[in-house]
Design a protein around this nucleic acid. Sequence first.
RNA 1: GCGCCUCUAGCUCAACGGCAGAGCAACGGACUCUUAAUCCGCAGGUUCGGGGUUCAAAUCCCCGGAGGCGCACCA
Length: 487
Amino acid sequence: MSIPYRFEQTATAAEVAARWDHLGAGEESGHAVAVAGRVMLSRPQGRLAFAELRDSSGAVQLFSLASVTKEFEAFTRLRLGDWVGARGEVVRTKRGELSVKVDEWVVLAEARLPFGDKWRGVTDVETRYRQREMDLWANPKSRERLLLRSLLVRRMRERLWDRGFVEVETPILHPIPGGAHARPFVTHHRALDTDFYLRIAPELYLKRLVVGGFERVFEIGRLFRNEGLSPRHNPEFTTLELYQAYADYEDVMVLVEELTAELALDLCGATAITYQGRPLDLAPPWRRATMAELVEEATGVALSVHTPRHTLAEHAQQLGVAVEPAWGPGKLLLEVYEKTAEPTLWDPVFVRDYPAEVSPLARRHRADPELTERFEAVVAGRELANAFSELNDPDDQRARFEEQSAQHAAGDEEAMVVDAEYLRALEHGLPPTGGLGVGIDRLAMLFADATNIREVISFPTMRPERARRAEDGEDPEAGETGLRPEP
RNA sequence: GCGCCUCUAGCUCAACGGCAGAGCAACGGACUCUUAAUCCGCAGGUUCGGGGUUCAAAUCCCCGGAGGCGCACCA
């Protein structure tokens, strides 16, 4: 049987269901359609045969009769997973199932490999992640999660366009990894004989675009961090970063809470959603609290960046934090916050006014130079967004870079290094700007009610399948060369 | 990186020191209204790999691999 190059589909399963819903049992519509999809169930029954055809919109039953259907015998031998195109009249069977009574049909692709258990599908997580194409057919929920993610990104773009933001693309190959505190992947460019780093954040380039006159920009794209995998971390992940000239972090808070609530309405139909069985209300306004306030709430002790270092160190140690000598009060306060307050947070809260020591790209707080105008949005106990009034003073930025650089030299591989190009850009003048980063995978998890980031990534990062054979000392290609010593 | 758990037929799972099994899928057959169709028949295995203990190992022990969860990391 030859496979055609195209098939003229005139209706989807969902369209058939909607348009001929009114047909009564045993009734015939008099209308022919052409449908296509994958055979998910097959019930041959002598001179009759039924098959469930699934397409991206839903499923419709194919009803085949030996007296009507061409190549009826072959139809009864269709296997689960075969792609089929079928033309015929829309009817409702005597038992009440809306069907296409097949006149002509054609195989569009054979499923050579079996398709798993028709009832229980495929549940083995390794198979589900490594062979996602199989998971998507076997488990409708997997498809729904990826669809939801797609819609999330689409709506996010639309909401930002509506607000006058311009979508841009900035380099993924960075000569200097910057914009975040993370270990990079390294690669090499032959012609330039130079190492490049896959970006750990687009931040610095986006702010350079603001310097260049793009007053509202955003980028949705992939970031790469050479760190551990976990149910909440994938080495490559997607973020939204945006920058708004003339705005400060208070303005960004309003944007974040409004945008999130709008997306919740788009995707879940309400701002009050349920995550992991627990109610979560995303309606603005969200609570705003300083890090110091939250620490005091959680511990009963008033601590801040102005608390003597040894006092902070004592508290941190009591909490089991391995305090390092290089840490100042800011880092210690952050550690205490993360151990005590952060795990208790559930409803959305803007945790604001982070220590300057741990925020090298954020502008100093207008009321306290030891703090910055930075916040993280914590929702359902997770960091969903990180934002600040951007540091636009080139001298201060240089000083912060140099502090980071000293930490890098002292062995902190994740500390930043001085980025002269970026400093030169700041010398040309960055207006007051509010900036924001949002983890799109985590946002998708929230709306999809998923606990594992891999559920919202089409092909999550896995150890390569060939690793085992290589470890065993086998050359995977040895058997495929066809070259054998003569006996 | 550390700890715990998992790995048996294409898929989903039993057997837990004593002959490696079932359902579904596949394959052959019956069946003119099925709905996870039903019925009859047939076939399917390096029990993740390697080593050890034992009369006997899927099962117990050791090493390795892959995966999951938690911790650490991810400011």
